[in-house]
Design a binder for these strands. Structure first.
Lengths: 187, 187
DNA sequence: GAAATAGTTGACCGATCTGTACACTTTCTC
DNA sequence: GAGAAAGTGTACAGATCGGTCAACTATTTC
């Protein structure tokens, strides 16, 4: 079979987990929704947890690829790209099936800091922080680490707010705040 | 019975749900951990969902009471209080059993925007935004609504980051960012 | 002191949970 | 074309899920 069944399983499981949550989605559910037999699932992944970890790896890859590419489409200089990040977020928020950040949700459902799923969710945020830090450095910020962390706060806050408060536009507010912080950090 | 058993049930259920999550906590678990019989539980609350809603009401009351009181202890003027909010957050993050924001987690586990639990989680954020807006107005900000929303983004982002990234100090970074935004909004 | 109220125990319901066993079929590779 | 690899369906195990039931005991209230 050319397009690996295993990958397709992970791809579809991602959709279901993203839409309905981890604990709320049973393996029987995945059998129905993915069309992959239970036996095959447990041949590829020994436990549900392993499947979730694979799903998170795919999500991390997909999201960061999309995010970085979209930002580079929207702006050229590092400083403009840092602001464009929030335009990209705004586009994401407006998607029909936007359901928040999968890693925030993973961290919320698996709260033990040592749990592999929690650790992997943290890793995603760390990689994003690294990306921001790189852009901040290229933009010439005085303290790139600090500015990057602050912009990450705005991004995470915008996601949470987009999920819970439907009558405001967090991406716009976050972008304006980012502009103020950026200007201040370059002065 | 003087100290209402029902309130005690809600109080203890809050602890368990906060520590372990909603879906991950079964009613049998609550029977063991709270010492309240299952029959009594279902006499007070017809479903698990109703119990969770009661828990969220208590949490909203507890958290906002603590937050506002602590802020007023730490600072006098509205502008200083807006910054002190992030000192209060930092204290919360350093508590041993800090497990993030219960309402973010509730929204993450009950994702349907129309679900009562999701709605109630959003209500908590709306009330916090109102509080911030009031302080921003008293502080003399040019656009109190916008500034309040931006500070809320920093707060929510700091919480998420405190949960997922353990090797940085989001409360401090958020406070510094808030100071920049506040100064900019007062000019 | 009778009645209502709030609480208890413990067994139980059907559904669903993660995970396994077994016998079978398709598909790729050499 | 044979064997390995990857897939299938179905039934099942044991635990746990949310929720109910009947029979009983304190406590309060009038």
């Amino acid at each position: 079979m050319r397009p690996n069944k295993r990958d397709e399983l992970v791809r579809k499981a991602l959709q279901v987990f993203y839409r309905d949550g981890f604990h709320a989605t049973g393996m029987d559910r995945l059998v129905v929704e993915t069309g992959v037999s239970k036996t095959s699932m447990y041949k590829h992944f020994r436990t549900k947890e392993e499947l979730i970890l694979a799903v998170l790896r795919l999500r991390d890859e997909n999201f960061r690829n999309w995010f970085v590419r979209r930002i580079e489409e929207l702006a050229d200089t590092p400083a403009d790209q840092l602001l464009a990040a929030f335009d990209a977020l705004g586009e994401w928020f407006r998607e029909d099936n936007f359901r928040g950040c999968m890693f925030i949700k993973a961290g919320a459902e698996y709260q033990d800091p040592d749990h592999p799923i929690h650790v992997q969710a943290g890793e995603h945020k760390r990689l994003l922080l690294e990306y921001f830090t790189d852009l901040c450095r290229k933009a010439g910020a005085q303290d790139p680490e600090k500015l990057a962390c602050q912009l990450l706060l705005l991004k995470e806050g915008a996601i949470v707010t987009a999920v819970l408060l439907h009558n405001c536009d967090p991406a716009r507010d976050a972008k304006e705040a980012a502009a103020v912080l950026l200007k201040n950090a370059l002065a």
